[in-house]
């Protein structure tokens, strides 16, 4: 069976410019060689620190950002290599929910008007039919039809997320990219939004690409998790085994940094230093400069994902030793 979505060695370079008489501005390598498959019906989490390229990867999958290299296949059909507008036509089955769905609505347009627009753009039949679809979508996210007459600023954050969700549900997607769907919401609202997401997925047979840095949410929701660092996936594993036994030093540090409820164990190992600039990447393993297990060889050998168990891949040459409990090497420079 072909996977729903396949990414093959995706590179995305942003900006960069040739200049006259001055040194060229190098592009930022936001995503550098991501290979990933998404199976139908799963929830794949994409985690990593701010600026690691998870949103860029999401936008590239969506088609708003053109990939520099690599190919994307949707149900076995190649959909990459097109200009953003054509790419969006090819990838109607993929939709994106913004981090802040309130700001993603035109403030001058009423909700009903904004929702209808998506249908108009995708060419959905006559007006009465559109009305029906909108009301169904609003009902599906638990809002009543009167919401249509109101304006974005009249809704709360949780309601806006529902509207954002309704907006793309109407378009009948197969894959939904959720960018930080819970950021900025308080705990109780978070829970209702997450439950809604799960409920809708079950009802509509959706596949989620879940971009987040909230690890507790990822743990609860995702089937598989990809940990990104500087535009690459450093570890890809089923959620259970990742949270049980992360192998990559970066993934370990990321998990260790998450706040926990158990008392006493509050001391976390902070990662030293800053990540290198994505415009000037170092040679070898990108994490070597901050890695407590780094060896001289780490700084010369580029790391690629290797399978350690079925479904569990890690991009670290020392994973065996780390798994066996090797002590950290001397302080990394």
């Amino acid at each position: 069976m072909t996977p729903l979505l396949e990414l093959d060695d995706i590179h995305v370079h942003l900006g960069g410019r040739k200049r006259w008489f001055q040194p060229d501005i190098p592009p930022v390598k936001a995503v550098g060689g991501v290979t990933l498959t998404v199976a139908a019906g799963e929830i794949l989490g994409l985690v990593g620190e701010s600026g690691c390229g998870k949103t860029t990867l999401g936008r590239t999958v969506l088609g708003l950002q053109r990939e520099t290299r690599g190919s994307i296949r949707l149900r076995g059909k190649t959909v990459s290599g097109a200009r953003p507008r054509d790419a969006r036509k090819l990838r109607r089955a993929i939709q994106y929910v913004h981090q802040d769905p309130g700001a993603a609505l035109d403030p001058w347009w009423s909700i009903g008007h904004s929702l209808e627009e998506g249908l108009v753009i995708t060419g959905h039949g006559e007006r009465s039919r559109r009305r029906e679809i909108i009301e169904q979508a609003l009902a599906a996210v638990g809002l009543d039809p009167t919401a249509q007459r109101r304006y974005p600023h009249e809704f709360s954050g949780g309601q806006l997320r529902r509207i954002g969700l309704a907006r793309i549900l109407m378009l009948d997607p197969d894959i939904v990219i959720l960018d930080e769907p819970t950021s900025g919401l308080d705990m109780s609202v978070q829970a209702t939004v997450l439950n809604l997401l799960l409920e809708i997925r079950a009802r509509r047979d959706l596949t989620y690409l879940f971009i987040s840095h909230d690890l507790s949410v990822v743990r609860r929701l995702c089937d598989r998790v990809a940990v990104m660092y500087l535009g690459r996936i450093v570890e890809l594993a089923p959620a259970a085994s990742l949270f049980e036994r992360a192998l990559h030093p970066y993934a370990q540090a990321l998990l260790a940094a998450a706040p926990r409820l158990e008392p006493g164990e509050s001391r976390t190992i902070a990662i030293r230093g800053e990540p290198p600039s994505a415009a000037r990447l170092p040679a070898g393993c990108l994490f070597a400069g901050r890695c407590p297990y780094a060896e001289p060889a780490c700084r010369t050998e580029e790391q690629v994902l290797q399978a350690v168990a079925p479904g569990h891949e890690v991009a670290c040459r020392r994973w065996r030793e780390i798994a066996a409990g090797a002590p950290p090497t001397a302080a990394a420079a």
Partner: peptide
Amino acid sequence: FVDALEGLG
């Protein structure tokens, strides 16, 4: 919101 519209095509 313009980004979202581009996303909708």
